[in-house]
Design a binder for these strands. Structure first.
Length: 108
DNA sequence: CGTTTGACTGGCC
DNA sequence: TGGCCAGCCAAAC
């Protein structure tokens, strides 16, 4: 459990990600705006998550509504499978319709 | 401490 | 629709 994810900024990011309901997705930029940091930091925070964490990292996709490719190609597929399991549909080109699935954080 | 890297994004063509 | 560029900021070396 003790990880570098203990940073206050990271905790804030994880708290925001946990607010995304099942079957919905959000973007790195959206989280970043709420957390008051850059979108890259959100991606970095996701990468720092240990396996088996309680953070629904799979619900965070990039602005194009696609799964951001990372070092491990297996993780990309896992993210798509997890989202499919939550009822999120992918486009023929592997994209998610953000107009339908994007979660809008409550004002506050 | 300076350089390089990275699960990003918006602008331009 | 899709590739390239600059800005972004923490982590790794």
């Amino acid at each position: 459990m003790p990880h570098r994810t203990s940073s206050p900024l990271y905790q804030q990011i994880y708290t925001l990600v946990r607010q995304v309901p099942v079957g919905r997705v959000t973007t790195y930029g959206r989280i970043a705006q709420r957390a008051g940091c850059s979108a890259r930091i959100v991606g970095f925070a996701m990468a720092a998550l240990p396996p088996g964490s309680d953070v629904p990292w799979q619900r965070v996709v990039n602005r194009q509504g696609k799964v951001s490719p990372r070092r491990d190609a297996e993780g990309d597929l896992l993210q798509q499978e997890l989202l499919l399991g939550e009822g999120v549909c992918f486009d023929a080109s592997g994209k998610i319709d953000l107009d339908c699935y994007a979660y809008d954080f409550p004002t506050g």
